[in-house]
Simulated assay, not measured.
Amino acid sequence: MTEQHRNADAYPQRIVCLTEEPTEVLYALGEEHRIVGISGFTVRPPRARKEKPKVSAFTSAKIDEILALQPDFVVGFSDIQADIARELIKAGVEVWISNHRGVDGILAYIRRLGAMVGAADKADAYARQAEQHIAQVQAAAAQFRQRPRVYFEEWDDPLITGIRWVAELVRIAGGDDVFPQMAAESLAKHRILADPGEVVRQAPDIIFGSWCGKRFRPEKVAARTGWESIPAVRDGAIHEIKSPLILQPGPAALFDGLDALHAVIAQWVERRGG
């Protein structure tokens, strides 16, 4: 056995990804051959849905089907997947549950996952590409003479505000999140707005919506009692960001998600003379 072959065998060969972001990262690194199962919510990259069996949702998983794939490594995200992780660990499977919540955490996640599969150099290059993209958007946003106040809605019933990496990306894109203190809360239950009138009082210039798992309805947002006085509602500045682009703590948010936020904010600024 060659040294190269021994080194290759030292890394996981059969990986199950319980969420989309490890799948997207591994495909981007050219390591997709290691993946034997993915989340049913995976849409990036599109070919993954055709090539890999879907064995999990977000809060549930087909444990027997996962075990039948004989994984030597399972990757998941957050405390919400603790029960899935426990069942797999009890069955003798090695499991890594990441719990990053900010932009820096996403970048570190890319590097860490790459290192775990023996692709540290490729992962570092990919993370540096993301860092360069972030810096470019940030530099463009620094030229804005005005910064809009932004309300990001992650769910509508109850109202849930955006998580930390979303608030950070809004800031990078050129806006200011109107609920920064809530964005620091990692759990959705701690980001619930008990009083929808609080959004009215914050008077955001732009409203972004990304309702995880269902289509965002701007007309429903605009029709909420008392919201007609909000600048974003009055000016028709209510925009959807597709959840796969922004609510996955992976590459999509740093590239397409950030670009989508920046495009809307730049348009708002342009309409007000820069």
Score class of each variant (00 low, 15 high):
residue 2 T to C: 12
residue 3 E to V: 11
residue 6 R to K: 13
residue 6 R to I: 12
residue 6 R to N: 09
residue 7 N to T: 12
residue 11 Y to C: 08
residue 17 C to D: 05
residue 20 E to Q: 15
residue 21 E to W: 10
residue 21 E to R: 09
residue 26 L to T: 01
residue 28 A to E: 05
residue 30 G to A: 10
residue 31 E to M: 15
residue 32 E to I: 02
residue 34 R to K: 15
residue 36 V to Y: 01
residue 40 G to T: 11
residue 41 F to G: 11
residue 42 T to F: 03
residue 45 P to L: 07
residue 46 P to N: 09
residue 47 R to D: 14
residue 51 E to D: 15
residue 52 K to E: 06
residue 53 P to A: 09
residue 55 V to T: 03
residue 57 A to L: 12
residue 58 F to P: 04
residue 62 K to R: 11
residue 64 D to N: 13
residue 65 E to H: 13
residue 66 I to N: 00
residue 66 I to S: 03
residue 70 Q to W: 09
residue 74 V to T: 04
residue 75 V to T: 05
residue 78 S to R: 08
residue 78 S to V: 07
residue 82 A to N: 12
residue 92 G to S: 10
residue 96 W to T: 06
residue 99 N to W: 09
residue 100 H to C: 04
residue 101 R to S: 06
residue 102 G to N: 15
residue 102 G to D: 15
residue 103 V to K: 03
residue 104 D to F: 05
residue 105 G to C: 03
residue 106 I to Q: 01
residue 107 L to M: 05
residue 109 Y to W: 09
residue 109 Y to H: 11
residue 112 R to Q: 12
residue 113 L to A: 00
residue 114 G to T: 02
residue 117 V to R: 02
residue 118 G to R: 09
residue 120 A to G: 10
residue 123 A to P: 01
residue 124 D to N: 12
residue 124 D to G: 00
residue 128 R to G: 00
residue 129 Q to T: 12
residue 132 Q to L: 08
residue 136 Q to P: 02
residue 137 V to K: 02
residue 141 A to Q: 08
residue 148 P to N: 12
residue 148 P to D: 08
residue 148 P to Q: 11
residue 148 P to K: 11
residue 152 F to C: 06
residue 154 E to R: 04
residue 154 E to Q: 14
residue 155 W to I: 08
residue 162 G to F: 03
residue 167 A to S: 15
residue 169 L to R: 01
residue 170 V to P: 03
residue 171 R to E: 14
residue 172 I to D: 04
residue 173 A to W: 04
residue 174 G to F: 01
residue 174 G to S: 09
residue 176 D to A: 14
residue 178 V to M: 06
residue 179 F to T: 02
residue 180 P to T: 09
residue 181 Q to W: 01
residue 182 M to C: 01
residue 185 E to H: 13
residue 185 E to W: 00
residue 190 H to C: 00
residue 190 H to G: 00
residue 192 I to Q: 14
residue 193 L to E: 05
residue 196 P to S: 13
residue 197 G to A: 14
residue 198 E to V: 14
residue 199 V to Y: 00
residue 201 R to K: 15
residue 202 Q to W: 05
residue 205 D to C: 10
residue 206 I to R: 05
residue 207 I to H: 03
residue 207 I to K: 04
residue 208 F to A: 03
residue 211 W to T: 07
residue 216 F to T: 13
residue 216 F to E: 07
residue 219 E to F: 06
residue 221 V to C: 09
residue 228 E to D: 14
residue 228 E to C: 00
residue 230 I to L: 08
residue 234 R to I: 00
residue 238 I to R: 04
residue 242 K to Y: 07
residue 243 S to N: 07
residue 245 L to W: 10
residue 248 Q to N: 15
residue 249 P to H: 08
residue 251 P to C: 10
residue 254 L to D: 04
residue 256 D to I: 02
residue 256 D to G: 12
residue 256 D to M: 10
residue 257 G to D: 04
residue 257 G to Q: 05
residue 259 D to K: 07
residue 263 A to L: 10
residue 264 V to K: 13
residue 266 A to V: 09
residue 268 W to M: 10
residue 273 G to A: 12
